[in-house]
Design a protein around this nucleic acid. Structure first.
Ligand SMILES: [Zn+2]
Ligand SMILES: [Zn+2]
Ligand SMILES: [Zn+2]
Ligand SMILES: [Zn+2]
Lengths: 153, 153
DNA sequence: GCACGGTACGTTATCTTGTCACGTAGGATG
DNA sequence: CATCCTACGTGACAAGATAACGTACCGTGC
């Protein structure tokens, strides 16, 4: 793993995400409890998608699996956190809280996962599926390859 | 689960996939052994993505996990089988052997997963990522929602 | 025939990932 | 203060996946 990467969250950026999370949470009429905050902070600090059991270990003490899975589920419900299916790992949302459809570019080499806007790709897919009679509710797109930094190196 | 669905493989369709698999395998200079054939057949018969341990059980006898994972890995290497990451499950490829990038529409209700051609969505995504400096090698797209049959019902 | 190397598969153990069921603490409401 | 709800703790376990090593078999070259 690279020591530090260009897209690491700065302290300023992290603070912004936290404020945004508080806002989203309040708007949803939900509580941003210390546990939820701690897990979310751990995710904003991570330089790559975090595994559930690694987060669990970082909670310290003797937290058990349901603790972390419940918390992640909550954060995902609000759109603050996304699950990367192909890695069985989790990332804080870049933009506060997105809709149900996310796109990630995952670097094979450094492990970084970049949340991405694919323009009309999603719309096109939805329309193509609809022509087939399929009604899409949620789309997961995970692409692997080489990020700009790793390609340069 | 529905008793039968429009896209269930007919005996004829299944035979076609088997012949195609033999061909692909031979072309790759690999062996289509009885075990590989059996696993592939189980997958062509399944009406929904199959779990590794379920396949393992259907192999009968006392097969152990590495048996099924090795076999699935082999079939995936040839593109004959795809893994659906969001389900931790496997499906036989509809078209014989596709490239590294697949699209699935997964019905929440009946569990069916339909392999799909999204036209230019993939190309657009690749181009958009490239503008960001990211070089995509493989793309996984999994959309969930309601299939035509389930929507009608 | 027989040593050799390669592929496929068996076997054991272990690790990682995720869920179920139930219990408790604390705040809000009446 | 009884009641309800949400969050969280806890123990047990199920499900998913891999590591490491051993064996059987088949072909090649001698
Ligand atoms: Zn997001
Ligand atoms: Zn990279
Ligand atoms: Zn395919
Ligand atoms: Zn359906």
């Amino acid at each position: 793993m690279m020591p530090l990467m260009a897209h690491a969250h700065t302290a300023r950026e992290k603070a912004r995400l936290l404020r945004e999370a508080e806002r989203v949470c309040a708007a949803a009429g939900e509580q941003f409890t210390p546990l939820r905050r701690q897990v979310f902070e751990l995710l904003t600090q991570a330089h790559a998608p975090a595994k559930a059991y690694d987060l669990l270990a970082k909670l310290g003490g003797d937290a058990k699996p349901p603790t972390i899975y419940r918390t992640l589920e909550f954060l995902m419900k609000l759109g603050l956190v996304h699950r990367i299916e192909s890695l069985n790992a989790f990332v804080a949302c870049d933009v506060g809280a997105c809709g149900r459809s996310t796109i990630f570019l995952i670097c094979d080499r450094c492990g970084h996962a970049e949340e991405f806007d694919a323009g009309h790709a999603l719309v096109d897919l939805g329309e193509a599926a609809a022509r087939d009679g399929f009604e899409i509710k949620r789309t997961m797109i995970e692409a692997t390859g080489l990020c700009a930094e790793c390609k340069a190196a």
